[in-house]
């Protein structure tokens, strides 16, 4: 609750009543990995501005296919920065509206509290049954995982590398213990600034290309004041603070 206080004060400062008179509604599509932070951010946002935000969470690739085929979203908070750029190039996104709202951090994680040490020895020595990664062809976290393996000069045979369709599934494989190691998003195992369970090794950011998650205003939401206001809100210090508390960089 405490972390929302600044936003409440900001709202008072802006003059809640005046804005509420123009309260609008917007529907946004949000990458699944950002489902929790966006809920907290939108709660503050709605309280401050009076705008109503409907959130649909899912896989970025599915959202792309839906948006291109006329889905009623005003903005997309993607899991990568390529999809927003592609939407702009294909005239579904508003030019110049794209910005990076979060930077994903990759961790090597195990549900087993003693498995991952500070030097990731289990991975280096091959002392594991399965390593779960997100699909490198589709998920930025998966690509970053492969880049990390290359940077570490660790070879993992394909038969020991289980591939989740998304980072959510890569996490499920590891969380159920079926994969004893997994490259997952720090945001999945992080809460209020620390590891929730298991053991983890934070991958140095120098080992892979940054995992930039970008937002884009869609053509459909071009004139939607609520959608524009929300995208601006994501850049505010109070939103940034929430985003970081969930384990993202900014």
């Amino acid at each position: 609750m405490l972390r929302r206080l600044p936003a409440v004060f900001a709202a008072l400062g802006l003059g809640l009543a005046g804005l509420s008179a123009h309260a609008g509604e917007t529907t946004i599509a949000v990458a699944a990995n950002f489902a929790e932070p966006i809920k907290a951010i939108v709660a503050d946002f709605s309280r401050a501005t009076g705008h109503t935000v409907k959130i649909s969470t899912g896989a970025t690739g599915k959202f792309y296919a839906q948006i291109v085929n006329g889905a009623p979203f005003d903005a997309l908070l993607a899991a990568d920065d390529e999809t927003p750029a592609r939407l702009v190039a294909e005239k579904h996104g508003v030019p110049d509206s794209v910005f990076s709202y979060a930077v994903g951090r990759l961790v090597l994680w195990s549900a087993d509290a003693g498995k991952v040490d500070a030097r990731a020895s289990a991975l280096k020595s091959g002392n594991f049954r399965f390593l779960s990664v997100a699909n490198p062809k589709t998920a930025p976290y998966g690509r970053a995982a492969l880049e990390t393996l290359a940077a570490m000069k660790v070879e993992v045979p394909e038969s020991k590398r289980v591939v989740g369709e998304s980072i959510a599934q890569a996490y499920q494989f590891a969380a159920t213990g079926n994969a004893d190691l997994g490259f997952v998003a720090q945001s999945q195992v992080w809460k209020a600034g620390k590891l929730r369970s298991g053991s983890a090794w934070g991958v140095p950011e120098s080992m892979h290309q940054p995992i930039r998650q970008a937002a884009v205003l869609l053509v459909r939401g071009r004139d939607n004041a609520a959608a524009r206001a929300l995208l601006d809100w994501l850049k505010s210090p109070s939103a940034r603070k929430i985003i970081e508390s969930y384990g993202y960089g900014s």
Partner: peptide, 26 residues
């Protein structure tokens, strides 16, 4: 199969999963 298979080529990557991969990779 998506959930239980882990998308391993030749072992658990069936046609429907391969198809899904194409869609997701645009």
């Amino acid at each position: 199969v998506l959930m239980l298979g882990g998308n391993l080529a030749g072992e658990t990557r069936v046609a429907s999963v391969q198809l899904y991969d194409y869609v997701e990779a645009y």
